[in-house]
Each structure stands twice: as structure tokens, then as C-alpha cells.
Simulated scan of single mutants.
Amino acid sequence: MAADSQAIASYATLILADAGIEITADKITALAGSAKAELPAVWAEVFAKATEGRDLKDILLSFSTAGPAAGSAPAAAAAAGGAAEEAAEEAPKEEEESDEDMGMGLFD
């Protein structure tokens, strides 16, 4: 049941953040209750505490703009004098499997 409770608390937290409403344990619990979902108080408190003082929208949007590989690739290529690019070109490309290869398609 913990996975269900976490999902309920997550959705309620995201709904509150999207609406621009302050995220509190009481509001998470109320939103879950209005959806007729049973949510233990501990999960509402955990999610409220985890998001306290943070802009959830900024956190979620930062995943698409930053990442560990994004900043390290140019630095590695510059340090290796282009050796990284040559190695990438020489690497064999894997072919993707398609449903047609298995004898079935989307509308079969």
C-alpha cells in the first residue's frame, strides 16, 4: 500500500504546485480526501516537508535543461583533442528492433 500512498501524495503535491497553492500536509490530505483516496497522514507530512520552501515547478523544469552528461561531453572532447569524437564515429551502431522484425505490426 505504500506505493499507492506515495503516488497519491505525489499527485496531490503536483496538483497543488500547478495551481500555485502552498503545499501543506493538510492541503495534500484534503485533496486526497476529495478524490476519495485514503492517504496516511505520514505521507502528506513527508511530501509537505520535502517541498517546503522550494518551487516545485522550477525543480521539475530543471531536469530537462541540465544533466550530468550535458556539461561533461564538451569538456571531455576538448581535453581529448577530438579523440572522443573519433571514437564515437568508429563505434558500431546498434540496429533497433522493430515490430515488423517479429512478424507483428501496430495494426495486425
Rank of each mutant, 00 (worst) to 15 (best):
A50S: 15
E100C: 00
L61K: 10
A88P: 02
T65V: 11
E45S: 11
A91M: 11
G105L: 10
G53P: 07
D58N: 15
D101Y: 01
G71E: 12
A12Q: 04
L61Q: 11
D26Q: 10
E90F: 13
E90T: 11
A83W: 01
S98H: 08
A17N: 06
E94I: 12
T24P: 03
T24S: 08
A35L: 11
S98E: 10
E45N: 12
M1R: 13
W43I: 05
A87M: 12
A32K: 02
E94Y: 09
W43C: 03
G103S: 07
A80Q: 07
I21F: 01
K93N: 06
I8P: 03
W43T: 05
G81K: 03
A66N: 15
R54E: 12
Q6W: 09
A78I: 05
G81D: 04
A30M: 10
A70Y: 11
A84Q: 11
T51P: 00
A2S: 13
A73N: 08
D55G: 02
F107H: 06
G82A: 04
V46G: 00
A7L: 14
G82T: 05
A66Y: 14
E38D: 12
G53I: 06
A12K: 01
L39W: 02
F107M: 05
A2R: 12
G82Y: 07
T29S: 15
E97M: 14
A7W: 08
A9E: 00
G33H: 06
E100M: 07
V42K: 15
E86H: 09
I8W: 03
A75Q: 11
A91Q: 09
D26W: 01
G67I: 03
G81C: 06
V46Y: 13
A77Q: 14
A91S: 05
A84T: 11
G53V: 04
